[in-house]
Design a protein around this nucleic acid. Structure first.
Lengths: 123, 123
DNA sequence: ATTTTCAGATTACAAATGTAATCTAAATAA
DNA sequence: TTATTTAGATTACATTTGTAATCTGAAAAT
């Protein structure tokens, strides 16, 4: 299932709180985008057709909810990128950030904590 | 400049060794894909039009070379993904890999080395 | 009970993408 | 020198994506 950029924007607000009506979604998106209501309806339809969203009929409008979790999506997208560009491994990506001066102390502290945790679980 | 998946495959083999002729590229790609020669020519044209490839005329065929570096492409793509999915920070991505059991000792060792290096440069 | 409205369904249409086939001019073969 | 080959240029066409407009039927208003 391939989710386009525009579709992703819609999914994103649904992940932020669901189930929710189309009106809801349109309202929430209006703060970040200039999309026409009709555009958003189209994207909702496509997401349903792709199996990324489900809905329940409620009188005459629908309540939508995600059929894929944000974490799962994050992970598959990340894996795809790493496989495409970094032989599937994380450290070259981190190295690339380090080399460009795009790592700060907070990032490094978090990485250290992750490593400690990993070592606690895998000794 | 937006490079499609198919175009990326072509760029990838050019990064692996350039300058190179279309014939060269077609030959190298034939080991990994079933693309028709004409398809590859189309992709070369599109990459040139997009400014991702340059070429020099050589008698009647061209020698192509990349106009963007792989490292630069890696980095912008990585940043885009992180901004889209992880608030622009690397550690949540690493955390996601750790949580899925997708980190091994080599990865962790490399990350530790990166951190040491970073701390040496930023104390 | 009619009319109006509005949610979702269907249709529209241009640009990008995947995947080639055809055209054209120049180089090479005969 | 004429015929043939062939590299790159141009054209083709279906699908996906961005961005809506129109249609349709049921709910709400009068």
């Amino acid at each position: 299932m391939d989710i386009s950029n525009a579709e992703f924007e819609v999914l994103e607000v649904i992940w932020q709180g669901h189930p929710c009506s189309a009106t809801d979604i349109i309202e929430r998106l209006s703060e970040h985008s200039e999309w026409h209501e009709k555009t958003i309806k189209t994207l909702l339809n496509r997401l349903v057709k792709k199996g990324a969203l489900g809905f329940e009929k409620q009188k005459r409008h629908y309540l939508y909810y995600p059929l894929i979790e944000r974490e799962a999506y994050q992970h598959t997208q990340s894996k795809n990128l790493l496989e495409k560009l970094f032989e599937g491994r994380v450290s070259p990506l981190v190295a690339s950030f380090a080399n460009k001066g795009n790592l700060n102390k907070q990032d490094v502290d978090e990485l250290k904590a992750l490593i400690d945790q990993w070592e606690k679980n895998n000794d």
